[in-house]
């Protein structure tokens, strides 16, 4: 073919990324391997959490059993349902769940290409930039979908409040971006290393721990009562800014190094 169609053209890798994204989406909608594993993982861990935190609810439940039905007030029921933690801890647990769920499913997109042997055809036809962008977009979409499903459910189950909605949503969005970008590049590494599963968690979780540290700190700020509104706003901007910059930095470094992972 003529040189002008070379994959180095800037417009070209974007188009390739779009193709790969649509291909992954189509295959995913057909097989639902990744979304099922991520979703199921999230929901079953949620169930585990509910079971494990029984002790935090037990007192109320026992008291309710002694009471005649008509005396039980809605407040008692609510208290029995919701564990008595701070909102920030609930947020922490939510992200721990999402984190493990992401690590259960997001490796799929790379590992599958590698295991099915389709990686050769892809390498012949695509530039590394296109592959990275496409896979990142797909993983982020998947993560957004799962977060969108799990979070309302989790909020209902544990009584976690959003607090300040715009900040809450920004936090969730920044969280998904940071988690998704980490999982994507680590999945690419783990897929090349073949040993995959265990390695993915081992090399990915330390990175994500730092991110969760920042995220939980931001959650603390979100749920803290502050008398000084200006200082609170500055702290919020600082925390959320830290979160977003983590995601952006990680994506930049990944974009820069991905070709060394992709090419052998």
């Amino acid at each position: 073919m003529k040189a002008s169609t070379g994959p180095n053209d800037a417009s070209n890798w974007m188009a390739q990324a779009r193709c790969l994204f649509l291909k992954d989406l189509r295959a995913e909608l057909r097989t639902r391997v990744a979304i099922n594993s991520v979703g199921l993982f999230a929901f079953s861990s949620l169930l585990l959490v509910a079971l494990a935190t029984r002790g935090l609810r037990e007192v109320m439940t026992l008291r309710m059993l002694d009471l005649p039905i008509d005396i039980i007030r809605p407040a008692d029921v609510t208290a029995a349902m919701f564990p008595a933690w701070s909102a920030a801890s609930k947020m922490g647990l939510l992200w721990t769940l999402l984190c493990f769920a992401a690590f259960a499913g997001l490796a799929h997109s790379f590992v599958h290409e590698e295991e099915a042997g389709t990686v050769t055809a892809l390498r012949l036809s695509m530039s590394p930039a296109g592959v990275y962008t496409g896979k990142l977009a797909f993983n982020l979409t998947l993560l957004f979908a799962v977060a969108l499903l799990v979070t309302p459910f989790y909020m209902g189950l544990t009584g976690m409040q959003a607090g300040n909605w715009p900040v809450f949503l920004t936090l969730m969005l920044a969280g998904c971006i940071g988690l998704g970008s980490t999982a994507t590049i680590v999945a690419a590494l783990a897929a090349k290393a073949r040993g995959s599963g265990a390695l993915f968690g081992a090399i990915g979780l330390p990175i994500i721990t730092v991110f969760l540290m920042l995220l939980l700190n931001a959650a603390n700020t979100l749920y803290s009562d502050s008398t000084d509104a200006a200082a609170h706003t500055i702290k919020t901007v600082q925390d959320v800014g830290g979160l977003i910059s983590f995601g952006i930095l990680l994506i930049s470094v990944s974009a820069f190094t991905f070709r060394f992972v992709w090419e052998e």
Binding site: R30, A116, G117, A121
Partner: peptide
């Protein structure tokens, strides 16, 4: 032989 296409498509 080691170049394969997508089975799910």
């Amino acid at each position: 032989p080691d170049l394969t296409l997508y089975k799910e498509l």
